[in-house]
Amino acid sequence: MKAALREQILTVLAAIPPGRVTTYGRIAAMTEGGTPRLVARALRELPDNHGLPWYRVITASRRVAEHPGAIEQRERLVAEGVLFDARGRVAPEALWP
């Protein structure tokens, strides 16, 4: 992945406000040449203790993706006031931008 694209992805990631979420696809649309898969890859490659709100990125179906950090991700979102419905989807009002 090109450094410029990675920087764009991380810039958008850093801008997601607390209590809000966005999708891999929405981040990709805000970049030049990004795709949802490249966004996911950039998040997977974040170094430890990076401080970026990776947990605010969810799937297009408004769910937490299945991955090793999914439980932590959901807990962090709930702690920020993000609500989930009975089917595990985030309320549409929480979507950013």
Rank of each mutant, 00 (worst) to 15 (best):
M1V: 07
K2I: 07
K2T: 05
A3P: 01
A3F: 04
A4N: 01
A4P: 00
L5T: 04
R6H: 00
I9V: 14
L10T: 03
L10N: 00
T11D: 12
V12D: 00
L13R: 06
A14K: 14
A15Y: 02
P17D: 06
P17L: 06
P18W: 01
T22L: 10
T23A: 08
T23P: 12
T23M: 10
Y24I: 05
G25W: 09
G25H: 10
M30V: 00
T31W: 04
T31D: 07
E32R: 14
G33P: 07
G34S: 08
G34Q: 05
T35V: 01
P36F: 07
P36D: 01
L38I: 01
L38G: 09
L38T: 00
R41T: 05
A42H: 00
A42E: 01
E45A: 13
L46W: 05
L46M: 08
P47Q: 08
P47R: 11
N49G: 09
N49P: 00
N49D: 15
H50Q: 02
G51K: 04
L52M: 11
L52K: 09
R56G: 10
V57M: 09
I58H: 09
I58R: 10
S61W: 02
S61E: 15
S61P: 01
S61D: 15
R63Q: 15
R63H: 14
R63F: 04
R63Y: 06
A65G: 02
A65C: 04
H67R: 00
H67C: 01
P68V: 12
P68A: 11
G69S: 14
G69N: 13
A70S: 15
A70W: 06
A70F: 07
A70C: 14
I71K: 15
I71Q: 13
E72H: 12
Q73N: 09
Q73G: 04
R74D: 05
R74Q: 15
A79G: 11
A79E: 13
E80Q: 12
E80H: 08
E80W: 06
G81S: 06
G81L: 08
G81F: 10
V82D: 10
L83C: 06
A86F: 02
R87S: 14
R87T: 14
G88C: 10
R89M: 11
R89C: 13
V90W: 10
P92A: 13
E93S: 13
E93V: 10
E93I: 03
A94F: 05
A94W: 02
A94P: 03
W96P: 02
